[in-house]
Amino acid sequence: MTTETGRPALEARDALDERIVVTATINGDERSWLSSSRDSLLEALRERLQLTGSKEGCNNGNCGACSVILDGRLVNSCLVMAAEVEGASVTTVEGLARPEALHPLQTAFLENAALQCGICTPGFLVASSALLAQNTAPSEEEIRFWLAGNLCRCTGYDKIIRAVQQAAEEVRTGVHRSPIAGTGTHGAEAGVESNTAIEGE
C-alpha cells in the first residue's frame, strides 16, 4: 500500500515499523504523539497531528511545499524523520497567524494575488517567514535565492516576490501598504480589513 510518491501509507507503516512516542513543541504547544519509526516529520504533522497545512509535493526535497521551521531553521519536513524532532521546536504554517490577525506575509500574499491553486503557498509562507526573521530588508535577489527551493507552477513567482517585499516593509516599518487600497499607509491592522474586502468582492 503506497501513496503516489511511493511512500507506504499510514496503515502499512503502522503494521511494519516500530511504534515510537515523540514529544516536541509544535507551534508553541508541547505535543506527544504515537508515530511509526518510518514516519517523516511531514507524515507525523499531517497524519498523526492532523496539521495538514504542510503539503506533500515531491516528497524528495525538491519542491518546498513541506517547509517548516525546526529549532529556528528552515527545513523540508519530508526530509526529516519524526523521531529526529524529539525535544525540538517546530513551527508550521498553522503557527504563523495570531488569533486576532494574519501574519503580514499572509495578508501580503492575498493582496498581491501571490497564489492561484495554493498548493505551494504554505511552503512559501513558512520559507519567507524564516527569511524575514533574519533579514527584514532583503533585496529581490536575496528573496529569489532564499526561495529557490520552493517551486510554484502557477504564479510565475513575480507576485510572490512582490508579496514578500511588501510584508518585509511592513515588518520593518510597521506600516501596511496594500496594493488594493491604493498607496495610502495604514496601521498594521489595516491588512486584515483589506482581506475582508477581497472576500467581499
Binding site: 526535497g61 525546526l70 528552515l74 527545513v75 523540508n76 532564499w146 527551493g149
Partner: peptide, 9 residues
C-alpha cells in the same frame, strides 16, 4: 548545495 532548506540539514 540545494536551497536554503537543504542547507539547514
Amino acid at each position: 548545495i540545494g536551497g536554503t532548506a537543504i542547507q539547514g540539514r
